[in-house]
């Protein structure tokens, strides 16, 4: 009998707790901290925002939407019409990219720049955009089918061993054309040698410092083809018979301004 009584006290405790909560709610001022949604929301914050977005720290809804999360429309509210960005060749793709959050990661700390290029994500966004356009006349479906087919047999792409399958779909040259120091003499498929992580090639070994074939790769600056060459360059180096394509005669492999027998010489 006593046991039964003990069992029945729980509903009372719960009801009491609810009533207590209600009383606390009504007795506390309207601006009490626990009555602000953002105080509760901040409990779930996965880390501080970057400095430029820090003013949104207490306004989750400025960027987040239920289920879909961070929608591009919310970024665009502030970041639309960035003409500097859109006019610059390497970043002009922003005009067509339909999603921001893949590369612009947030909540990584105040001092972190919320930008990190993710090539695979860009390819994915492109594929998604193609797959959503069901209009047969746009040709997007055909392009998508071709891309998918290409992905299946995509290992036919020479080079780019370090690329993910998605990254292989991208045409490097569209954005990186201006970075091509080889004047497209090595072709347009940058990924044959370069990776998406870094543009430099750590494995690259410069030919021997006693090699004399410099001009195969290096081109002299315009001034070397003018009177400047005889009046200044040859005179400074003390090599009056040096020819423009015989770089090795005056220059050393440490750096171009490092002149044999002269040392560091920077004219301008």
């Amino acid at each position: 009998m006593a046991k039964k009584k003990k069992k029945n006290k729980w509903p009372w405790i719960l009801a009491g707790a609810f009533i207590l909560l209600g009383v606390v709610w009504f007795l506390t001022p309207d601006d009490a901290r626990f009555k602000h949604a953002n105080v509760w929301q901040s409990l779930t914050s996965p880390g501080p925002l970057s400095e430029s977005h820090a003013f949104l720290e207490n306004n989750c809804a400025a960027c987040h939407a239920p289920v879909t999360g961070v929608e591009p429309s919310k970024c665009i509210v502030c970041h639309a019409n960035n003409t500097d960005l859109l006019k610059r060749q390497p970043t002009a793709f922003h005009a067509h990219v339909t999603s921001c959050k893949e590369c612009h990661l947030e909540h990584n700390g105040k001092n972190m720049l919320p930008t990190g290029m993710d090539h695979a994500a860009m390819a994915k966004i492109g594929m998604r955009a193609l797959s959503r356009n069901k209009d047969p006349q746009s040709g997007d479906q055909v392009a998508l089918a071709n891309l998918k087919h290409w992905m299946q047999m995509n290992n036919t792409r020479v080079g780019g061993e370090n690329l993910k399958p998605m990254e292989k779909l991208l045409n490097c040259y569209t954005c990186h054309q201006n970075d091509d120091q080889h004047f497209s003499l090595f072709g347009k498929d940058c990924a044959q040698c370069h990776t998406v992580q870094q543009w430099d090639i750590p494995q690259y070994r410069h030919p021997s410092s006693s090699s004399r074939d410099c001009s195969q790769c290096h081109q002299a600056p315009p001034s070397h083809y003018m009177m400047h060459f005889g009046m200044i360059s040859q005179t400074v180096a003390g090599k009056h018979k040096a020819k423009v394509r015989e770089c090795f005669a005056c220059h050393q492999t440490t750096s171009w301004p490092d002149i044999k027998g002269v040392g560091w010489y920077k004219h301008h």
Partner: peptide, 20 residues
């Protein structure tokens, strides 16, 4: 609730993220 309210990132593959 937090996960749903602030967005499920993995739901991207089928949720429309293009400009509506």
């Amino acid at each position: 609730w937090g996960a749903v309210h602030f967005g499920l990132r993995w739901s991207d593959s089928w949720a429309p993220t293009t400009l509506t």
